[in-house]
């Protein structure tokens, strides 16, 4: 069991709305923790659209999902958040009126307010068919540490951006890189596909993983690839399955918030039906709701600042202009 954490605001969901909310909380001087089921920041945008150009972010004529997440992350980090990645928010309880959220990893967060920016729900990687039980023995759904691929034979499975990004990252680091995809077309960004095809990586289309084999130490050492010419065995100590994600509201549905279909009903404060629990971004529902990132940013600011007045009723709803803040800190530094 991890040490319980106490913060002013817990943000559940590290997509665009959650990252901007984190910045807003830091701007007001609130201590903040960010929890997300995925092991990386960026939510749906990072996981599903890293290479797509997004055209409807205010002030940015065109930005890729990856660049947007990078910018939002830099902004969010000014709040010095506690990051709880790979943690799915599981239960909500109240202790003396204060929300306490516990993750599926057993992390407890006591937060004066909770902000749910969960988008379409918690993301779960699609399992590699027929290969369950190999997680932690060489099979993973993410690469969180590229050094782990060094001098290994790496098998990447999938045809999307993540699969090609990881194959490319493994080239030059791994002993060998094989990318297996069950179709002969790829969804990944064309430029990345071309780079991988031009590299030493072996790309096998119309190929599926038929079986994984472990050595005496219980860790994967080879994989059987089934292609059009039958089955062949390749060396592989690391298998990265990048087959996309499924999303569901999951445990949030049992928190007792008023829901509207698969969305959380909120009022104009972005308050849910539960005390000290707010919501923002794609997950909210109210009359006239438009589900765009641009709207999520506004809701995040509304939610954080309204939450702040609940934490400290004497504080102003309006956080002040960031431009004023810059001037005042400069002056403090000067004096």
């Amino acid at each position: 069991m991890n040490e319980p954490l106490t913060v002013d605001l817990l943000v559940v969901g590290a997509g665009p709305a959650g990252l901007f909310a984190t910045f807003c909380a830091g701007f007001r001087g609130l201590s903040v923790a960010v929890m997300d089921a995925l092991p990386e920041l960026g939510g749906q945008v990072g996981a599903m659209y890293p290479e797509k150009a997004i055209l409807d972010i205010a002030g940015m004529p065109a930005v890729t999902g990856r660049d947007l997440v990078e910018g939002l992350t830099g902004q969010a980090m000014t709040a010095r958040p506690h990051l709880l990645l790979g943690h799915t928010a599981q239960t909500l309880a109240y202790e003396d009126g204060t929300p306490v959220v516990t993750s599926d990893q057993g992390q407890t967060v006591r937060a004066a307010a909770v902000l749910v920016t969960g988008g379409i729900g918690a993301f779960t990687p699609r399992p590699l068919p027929g290969c369950t039980g190999y997680e932690g023995r060489g099979l993973s759904y993410f690469v969180t540490d590229l050094d782990d691929l060094t001098d290994r034979d790496v098998l990447v499975v999938g045809g999307g951006d993540s699969a090609f990004d990881w194959a490319l990252a493994a080239v030059g680091r791994a002993r060998s890189v094989t990318l297996a995809h069950r179709r002969d077309t790829f969804r990944a960004h064309r430029a990345t596909v071309d780079k991988v095809l031009a590299s030493e990586a072996q790309v096998c289309t119309r190929t599926q993983v038929a079986a994984l084999h472990c050595g005496p130490d219980g860790r994967i050492e080879s994989a059987d690839l089934k292609g059009q010419d039958g089955i062949r065995r390749i060396k592989a100590q690391r298998v990265v399955a990048a087959l996309g994600f499924t999303a569901s509201l999951g445990p949030l549905e049992s928190w007792g918030m008023n829901l509207d279909g698969r969305h959380i009903a909120v009022d104009s404060h972005m308050a849910t039906s539960l005390p000290r629990v707010f919501a923002a971004g794609d997950i909210t529902a109210y009359p006239g709701k438009v589900r765009l990132i641009a709207v999520g940013f506004g809701e995040a600011a509304t939610a954080v600042n309204n939450a702040a007045t609940v934490l400290d009723p004497a504080s102003d709803l309006f956080p002040g202009h960031s431009t004023e803040r810059h001037v005042s800190t400069t002056r403090e530094g000067d004096s």
Partner: peptide, 10 residues
């Protein structure tokens, strides 16, 4: 059936 493999909400 490629669509079924991609759909994040099944």
């Amino acid at each position: 059936a490629s669509c079924m493999e991609e759909c994040p909400v099944d």
